[in-house]
Structures are given as C-alpha cells and as structure tokens.
Design a protein around this nucleic acid. Structure first.
Lengths: 226, 226
DNA sequence: TTAAAAATATGATATTTGTCATATTAAAGG
DNA sequence: CCTTTAATATGACAAATATCATATTTTTAA
C-alpha cells in the first residue's frame, strides 16, 4: 500500500494540513482504486460515506435534469477531493462522478475525515475554502448560463478547458470531450454545439481534427466570450 | 444595544452554536443597522470584512453579467448570514446584497468570527453545512437554467417563492418582486416574463392584481415545472 | 478486416425567446 | 390632486436555438 506521506498530489488538496501522525493513520485506512475511462465513481443519490482524493486523471461531475439529459456541472482533476459536500451535509451525493480518462483515486472513509475536522483546524479551513471556491464558481457559472448566448458560452468553455487543463504537444486541448459532453457543459443541444464549432472553424478561431480541438485565435475567442 | 443572547433569530443561524461567553462578547462588538427597501447592504467587489446576520426582512443577492443585466442568484431572509463565503475565502464579495423590503441586520466584524472558527468546532461545522447547502442549491439551479425552458423556470420560481416565503392573508406571495426582478431570477427578458405570466393567468394557474401574484393551481404549476 | 454501431456533420424547419415599438396602468413627487 | 415618471402589458417582428431528417465519418467489436 502506497504511503500518503509521500504522495505529491496530497500537497495540492486540503489534506496538506495533515500532521505526520495523521498521514500514517490515513495510509492504513485509505483504499486505492483504478478507474477506467467512462467508469462511474459514484452516482447521484448514492451514499458515499467518505471522500475520494484524485491522484491522477480527470472526471466530470454531472446531474441528470428533468428532461433526461445529463448536465456537466464541473470537471475535476488530480489534487482535488470528491464528495466533501455530501459528507459534510450528511446527505447522498448530489452529482455523479464519471472518469473522462483512466484515473487513480484513493477513498478515505468518513469516520477518518470527520476526526480531522475535530482536531485539525487548518484542515477544516482548507476544506471550507475549497467549498467556498466551488460556490463562487457555481454562482458565476449560473449567471453565465442565464445571461450569455450559446456562442458566448461555447467560446468561454473552450478557453476554460485550455486554461485549466492545458494542451497536448500538438496544441490540442488536453481534455478530450465528445461534442455531446461539450454541449452538456454549455447547456445546449448537441447539434447546436456541433454547428457552432463548425462556425468557429470557418472563422479560423479553432481547428478540428476528429475529437481534437486546437484553439487558433485565443484573443478572438476571448472577445466572443465577452 | 440589544443582546445577542436574547435574539431569537440567532437560533436559526450557525451562530446557535455560540456559548454564553461568546454571545456576551458578540453583543459588544456587533453593530445593528436598519436597511430600507431598495438600499444596498454591500456591492459586488467590495471588501466587507465581516458577516451580516439578518434579523428581519428579505434581500436579493445579485451579480452583474457581462451584458449589463443583473442576475438574482439567491434570495435570503431572516436567520441567515451574509458574506460568509467572502470572509472565508478572504476575497471581495462576489455578489451584491439589496433589500427587497425594510430590513434589520447586525454586522459582526471578521476578527470576531474568525475567533469562533478557531475555538468553536460546532460553529465551524454549522457554517460549513450552510455553505454546502448553498453549493447544492447553486448546482441544482445551474442545471435548471441550462436544461429547462423559460416557462418551466417561471413555474418553478413561483412555486419556490410560495414554498420558501409563504403567502399573505389574501393568499398572494409574500415576497413582492417586480416583473424585472422575477425575470432576472429565471434568466429571461422582462417582456418574456410578463408574457408568460399573462399566459399563466389566462390558463387559470395564477391571479395577477398589480404586483400581487396568487397561485391558484399549484398542482398544474408543479406539472409545468416538471 | 469488415460489418454494425456510434459519433459527427449539415440542411430544413419549427419553436422558443429576445427586441423594439407602443399602449396602458400604476406609482411617485411636487 | 395632478403631472410626470416608471412599471406593466401586448403586438409585430427578428434572432437564437431546438428538433428532425439524413449524410458522412469514426469507432467498436465480431
């Protein structure tokens, strides 16, 4: 079993506040998991009873809407924790987590984490700050969905993917989403998303090669996103 | 100066976890304020340096979008705290707070509240749970904005206002919003909102008398909201 | 490798929603 | 109380977006 003390990823999450003793204990009670691309980590409504620490890979957090379509609420990558909100609220998870690429995650049972809240104030504050960050992001996202056009939202989403997850050697976006997934981030029909991507391509803003998307004119995209 | 120990509203907020000693100290450092309808409590981008506890009244939390329109992110009423996220993240506030009716609020300086986080774990957990609740609400709201039609969102908003803030003696919704404000909750143009309200009226779902809105057929509205 | 299935793409069209113009009604202030 | 202003309402039209049909490409799996 790998040691949490030596895990680099830990340094980027709220867990960085843990003491040596706490880390040793954590190593014993955590379980490591490999999640294949497309596999579900947990599903909306489930009782998770702990949190997942993402060691590697990217996943989407989705919610099923009344019309039967999934909406992607957030993308989460290594160094972040999953299931914090549900654990703190003592409720089933509100979102499903599905791997967008192969992932390595560690599961930490609730009993262990709740102990940190009692004894380690720095950890509590880190978690609080992380959830506060999520809340700000969610509020901002909400306003965008309510007030911006689909075109603006698409431009913004492409820039977000670029800035947050970076690009491959061939300059294409590192996170590879299907058109369907991209549409469910910006909240539109798949066809509308495809059509706008084609428009962007014709305008020379992006380049499309299969699933690969290269941002050619970032400034123009920024202007489009307002 | 009124005593926090005797304030009933306190019991409904995270502050219920405070000890007698903490409450006595709180009474000394808090300041009470009357906010008139339409007045601003704080504005997006401001440094608030503390939190507001709402003793009476309702306010809207809004965010200015790129197109110059305000979007109402949330309505907040007595017993709730304002500015928690900003204080914890140590950032300017992300949203503006504007009174929808005359309000009584108390301001508690940051220095005081941060002390509770250190010494009172129950208080920390209460704040965390409250922010987690906001996050869940925001995620849900986001999916609605992305996936539901304006009509569905209007029906939902009316039901939300009814369930959350109740009705007056004449059965009309207690929170009186302008058409413009209602539109900026559901994320649509004012005219579209007015038009749909007229449609709902013609269908016998609601009754309109000036600004007053009475829900006549709650079940039908629920069906419309899906 | 090839057939079948899924994803992407595009046209045609319908529907939803926004915008502008203009009444009509209600509210505010002298 | 009346005048002025703002809010509400509605029509006509334009723009954005969704839906359905169908072609093309890519991926999957037998």
């Amino acid at each position: 079993m790998s040691k949490c003390e030596q895990c680099i990823v830990r340094e980027f999450s709220s867990l960085k506040a843990l003491t040596k003793d706490e880390l040793l204990k954590l190593s014993d009670c955590k379980t490591s998991h490999i999640i294949k691309k497309g596999e579900v980590i947990f599903e909306e409504g489930e009782n998770v009873n702990g949190i997942y620490c993402i060691k590697d890979g990217i996943c989407k957090l989705t919610k099923l809407s009344a019309n039967g379509k999934d909406h992607i609420v957030k993308l989460v990558t290594k160094g972040e924790l999953l299931g914090q909100r549900s654990m703190i609220s003592d409720e089933p998870v509100n979102l499903s987590a599905v791997a967008l690429e192969d992932m390595q995650v560690c599961f930490i049972p609730k009993s262990e984490v709740m102990g940190y809240f009692d004894k380690n104030n720095q950890f509590s504050m880190n978690v609080m700050r992380s959830i506060c960050g999520d809340l700000k992001e969610a509020d901002d996202h909400m306003v965008n969905l309510a007030q911006k056009t689909v075109k603006e939202r698409l431009a913004e989403a492409l820039l977000y993917l670029h800035d947050t997850f970076g690009e491959n050697d061939d300059k294409s976006l590192k996170v590879q989403l299907s058109r369907d997934e991209l549409a469910s981030i910006i909240g539109t029909a798949t066809e509308s998303c495809i059509r706008l991507l084609s428009d962007f391509k014709k305008l020379g803003l992006i380049e499309l090669t299969g699933k690969k998307i290269v941002l050619k004119d970032i400034n123009a995209l920024k202007k489009l996103a307002e």
